[in-house]
Computed example of a mutant assay.
Amino acid sequence: MPVTPFDAAPQQGPRPLPLFLGLLRSETAASPERRAAALAGLTAYQAARRPGARRPMPVAARAGRATLRDYGGAGAPVVFVPSLINPPLILDMPYRRSLLRWLSRQGVRPLLVDWSEPTPQDRAQDVAQHVEDMLIPLLRSIGEPVALAGYCLGGTMALAAACAVPVRGVALIAAPWRFSGFGAEALGRIDELWHAAQPTCEQLGLVPMEVLQSGFWQLDPARTILKYERFGRLDPDSAQAKSFVAMEDWANAGAPLTYAAGRQMFDDLFSADLPGRGQWRIAGRIADPAALPCPAVEFVSLTDRIVPAASAAGLHDRRELRLGHVGMVVGSSARSYLWEPLARWLTALPHIR
């Protein structure tokens, strides 16, 4: 069956493409029909039309290379902390799937941390320094205690910051804290990935996004291929197809990590589980969820294949749902199961001056 050559198509991803194609060959070895369907979906994804880029929201504050982008709204400020992995715009997706723009109409003033792109000169900034040298100064620049909300690794960082500076409350969304909860098999694969990539990353001073993406694919290789099979059968002009392209573009984009942030994430968080063992220090203090002096809530998905429910912080106020790691933020059921409960929780927080 003839297929469009990939070198003749726009290279929108997946990144790294050779590894994806190897995964595709492995997952469809026993089914030529599935392989053809996945390749057709991949070609359609690469050739899909993309909307023009939206204008960035105004900058409210800066700290180092990080900025705080203001989404407006008349309510109390809430700083949203995205992961260092993948772009922050998962919280501001197009096609009426922007959590932040919706919240700005619900009595909340969302402010989004944009970590910007590191250079090799930033190689020594680990995850803790991102919190101490960028996130905490951004919080203090607002001039009043704010609420914090963090997604994925951004939730890990938000919780650490809330243990170090006064905040009105902290909400975690699919955020790992007890990294041993990933399980021995997944942790073994993660350790192998870092062992293979670490020497090159040390030379570069950065951990390329492709290293992290390949790790995500290994967590659920069957689904990685199946979604392209399904996409190839969609009407390219349908809302579902447009949302898929937007989500995959987000998943295949993203700045590298600094080398120190990658080393700390793999060695201190995943391997040593310093947060879960009560040994992770931020701003000179042990980051301890049990000692938080403010209201705290965590939204945990029982079907999350990226951040398993067993890795959550174990807060007293735990809201369980059954949506995927990304679907809980932008899926068709996200508004009912995450957006609305989160808005109610944030607007009920006491004001502190």
Results as ranks from 00 to 15, higher is better:
Leu204Val: 03
Leu187Arg: 14
Ala74Phe: 10
Leu17Phe: 06
Ser332Val: 11
Val330Ala: 10
Leu148Val: 00
Leu338Val: 13
Trp345Ala: 04
Leu112Gly: 05
Asp268Glu: 14
Arg50Gln: 13
Asp317His: 10
Ala44Gln: 11
Gln129Phe: 08
Gly169Met: 03
Thr156Asp: 04
Asp235Lys: 05
Gln264Lys: 04
Leu135Cys: 03
Leu99Thr: 00
Leu269His: 09
Glu210Arg: 14
Asp220Glu: 15
Phe270Thr: 09
Ala348Thr: 13
Arg65Gly: 12
Ile352Glu: 13
Arg178Cys: 11
Ile282Ser: 00
Ala251Ser: 11
Ser83Glu: 07
Ala29Gln: 13
Leu172Cys: 11
Pro275His: 12
Glu192Tyr: 03
Pro77Ile: 00
Arg178Asp: 14
Glu117Val: 13
Gly41Cys: 01
Gly181Phe: 02
Arg223Cys: 11
Asn86Gln: 10
Ser83Asn: 07
Ala128Gln: 12
Ala296Ile: 02
Gly254Asp: 02
Phe299Tyr: 10
Gln218Glu: 14
Lys227Leu: 15
Thr28Glu: 05
Thr4Pro: 12
Leu148Asn: 01
Tyr259Thr: 10
Leu159Gly: 05
Asn252Ser: 09
Arg69Thr: 11
Pro208Val: 01
Gln279Val: 10
Ala313Cys: 09
Leu111Val: 06
Gln218Val: 11
Ala36Lys: 13
Met265Gln: 11
Ala40Gln: 05
Ala272Ile: 04
Trp177Phe: 02
His316Ala: 15
Pro51Arg: 10
Gly324Trp: 07
Ala9Pro: 01
Pro14Ala: 11
Tyr151Ile: 10
Pro5Arg: 08
Asp268Val: 07
Ala196Ser: 07
Thr67His: 10
Gly154Tyr: 08
Asp220Val: 12
Arg97His: 06
Glu229Gly: 00
Gly183Tyr: 07
Leu269Thr: 04
Ile306Met: 08
Leu315Asp: 04
Arg168Lys: 03
Leu257Gly: 01
Arg168Tyr: 00
Leu219Pro: 01
Arg15Ala: 15
Arg54Ser: 14
Gly262Met: 01
Leu204Asn: 03
Gly52Lys: 09
Ile352Trp: 05
Thr347Met: 02
Met247Gln: 13
Met93Pro: 00
Arg305Gln: 12
Glu132Tyr: 02
Leu19Thr: 14
Phe244Thr: 05
Ala239Leu: 12
Ala343Ser: 14
Ser311Ala: 15
Glu320Ile: 13
Leu91Glu: 00
Val330Asp: 07
Leu139Asp: 05
Gln213Trp: 01
Ser333Asn: 06
Asp268Ser: 14
Glu132Val: 05
Gly107Phe: 09
Val127Arg: 00
Met1Tyr: 14
Leu226Thr: 15
